[in-house]
């Protein structure tokens, strides 16, 4: 029974990882841009949810879309003000620019809100439910469903719509896309906006069950990088599979071997996968 709960918790945590990574997959995978500020985008979304709830008394039905919109705008702004220029340079310039951006976002937040921990009430989406002896937190289930929804949505967008083809075309070959009449800048700005909006949904949902503090993005960002890489850059379903896999592996290894070693197991498996399959789980060779 306990083991079933361990697997279930791992599955739900994995869904959070997938959710957390969905926006990063789009930005990193599609555009080949590393976003070191990703964790801080999530953090900003958490504060949007917090401010909306405590100061404006808005419920999750409003603050989740609100966070998506705010982050969409932030993403577009960051693209035009920074990323567009940085992309002219080598990949290192992206690391430089987004690392600096991460510090600015993180500590501007600390300046405004102080370093104190805050949180939302844990039962905004209802009390813990018990099914067949298994305990389920509604907020985590919502996060899991959102991860699934966002993954399917992004996947359909990229593979079944004209907009998606254009996004992919720009990602594949910027100058070729220009030749067939696609203006790359609005497309890439849109990709950044969409990626950031997904991150916004993720942050607002994670805020339902996690603490909120300016440095919260740091502790989650590394795992998001691993998820995107393990799934294969540019593979949206890959991130979902990788996220769930890491969640379950972590949970089981924490239960059996000890929580101090769960990241050890994850990183060893990650390296093993890369060494034997250098394009990630679902990435194209």
């Amino acid at each position: 029974m306990i083991l079933a709960q361990v697997v279930l918790n791992g599955f739900l945590v994995g869904a959070v990882y997938a959710l957390f990574s969905s926006g990063l997959t789009l930005i990193w995978g599609m555009m080949n841009v590393v976003n070191f500020a990703h964790g801080d985008f999530v953090m900003i979304a958490m504060y949007v949810a917090f401010v909306a709830f405590t100061m404006l008394h808005l419920g999750p039905a409003i603050f989740v879309p609100l966070a998506a919109i705010m982050l969409f705008l932030l993403g577009v702004l960051v693209y035009y003000a920074l990323v567009r220029h940085v992309m002219r340079g080598p990949m290192l310039a992206q690391i430089l620019g987004t690392f600096g951006l991460a510090l600015v976002l993180r500590y501007a937040t600390l300046w405004v809100f102080s370093a104190n921990f805050v949180s939302l009430p844990e039962n905004l989406l209802g009390e813990v439910q018990t099914f067949a002896g298994l305990r389920l937190e509604p907020s985590r289930v919502a996060a899991g469903l959102a991860a699934l929804g966002l993954t399917i949505g992004l996947h359909l967008l990229l593979t079944h719509t004209a907009l998606g083809s254009r996004l992919l075309a720009v990602a594949e070959d910027r100058s070729a896309a220009m030749l067939v009449g696609i203006r790359p800048d609005p497309m890439q700005a849109l990709a950044w906006g969409l990626g950031a909006a997904c991150t916004g949904v993720a942050g607002a949902l994670i805020a339902l069950f996690f603490y909120i503090t300016p440095t919260v993005g740091e502790s989650l960002a590394l795992i998001a990088f691993v998820v995107v890489c393990l799934g294969g850059f540019g593979s949206v379903p890959g991130a979902l599979v990788a996220g769930l896999a890491i969640g379950i592996i972590e949970s089981l290894s924490a239960f059996w071997i000890g929580p101090a070693f769960k990241d050890l197991v994850v990183f060893i498996l990650f390296l093993a996968v890369l060494w034997f399959r250098p394009q990630g789980l679902l990435g194209k060779a």
């Binding site: 620019g97 600096g100 991460a102 510090l103 600015v104």
Partner: peptide
């Protein structure tokens, strides 16, 4: 951070 951002920009 802002100075790093400006240099990269």
């Amino acid at each position: 951070g802002a100075i790093i951002v400006l240099i990269s920009r």
